[in-house]
């Protein structure tokens, strides 16, 4: 692995660790912080373990880091009380804090490309399926997330569950969250198709180093 790759990846990892440390310092709700940090930690661990055998592009690592950054900010303030969201709420006259919806949207918008890369390199997917599968996966994982949220909300701690779920009293919250992620993924894939058409290449070059893997 090139030295430059190592520096980029280590600085992204360093950023995540520092950010996690910052959000761990006096979070709004300690138990929520613990609960909501499990999945990001697992994801980062997985990426760190697989970065040699299955390297993603810089763009993907950067997008994933950006998404985790947004998520950790939400976790620190327990989503419904993120200052940026509250500010947006006041200035745009929304009736609720929209930060969680924004993060659901960015789940689709920021993670659809890394998934596209995964399907392209790991599953050797081609053609229309290459753009369809990331959207489908985003939608599926959003649905799975809503299911897990509802289990946690009912099982772990009813009053913590409401915060964790972050529905803020909206019965359609789950559907709206999934819609936000779907829009994010659709926009990302549309931009990707347009940029590839524009640059005249049907599929981008693989991530740094040639990866030849069969499923």
């Amino acid at each position: 692995m090139l030295v430059r790759n190592r520096i980029v990846l280590l600085s992204l990892l360093g950023w995540f660790v520092v950010l996690s440390g910052w959000t761990a310092y006096a979070p709004a709700d300690r138990q929520f912080w613990m609960l909501a940090s499990i999945l990001p930690t697992l994801l980062v661990f997985l990426l760190a373990v697989t970065h040699r055998t299955f390297p993603l592009s810089y763009a993907s690592y950067f997008l994933i880091t950006l998404f985790l950054t947004l998520h950790m900010i939400g976790v620190h303030y327990t989503y419904a009380q993120v200052p940026a969201g509250a500010w947006l709420d006041e200035s745009m006259h929304f009736d609720r804090n929209h930060f969680d919806r924004l993060v659901h949207f960015s789940f689709g918008f920021l993670l659809a490309y890394p998934m596209e890369e995964g399907f392209r390199l790991l599953a050797c997917t081609r053609g229309w399926l290459l753009y369809y599968l990331p959207v489908m996966t985003i939608l599926g994982l959003s649905g799975l997330w809503e299911i897990i949220e509802s289990w946690v909300a009912r099982a772990v701690h009813p009053e913590l569950g409401i915060t964790y779920l972050g529905s803020q009293g909206d019965p359609w919250d789950a559907q709206k969250d999934m819609t936000a992620a779907l829009y994010g993924a659709l926009i990302c894939m549309t931009l990707l198709i347009i940029s590839r058409k524009w640059r005249g290449s049907s599929s981008a070059s693989p991530a740094h180093g040639t990866v030849q893997m069969s499923s």
Partner: peptide, 8 residues
């Protein structure tokens, strides 16, 4: 995914 789409 399509189950979720249907719920939406």
């Amino acid at each position: 995914a399509h189950g979720g789409l249907f719920e939406m």
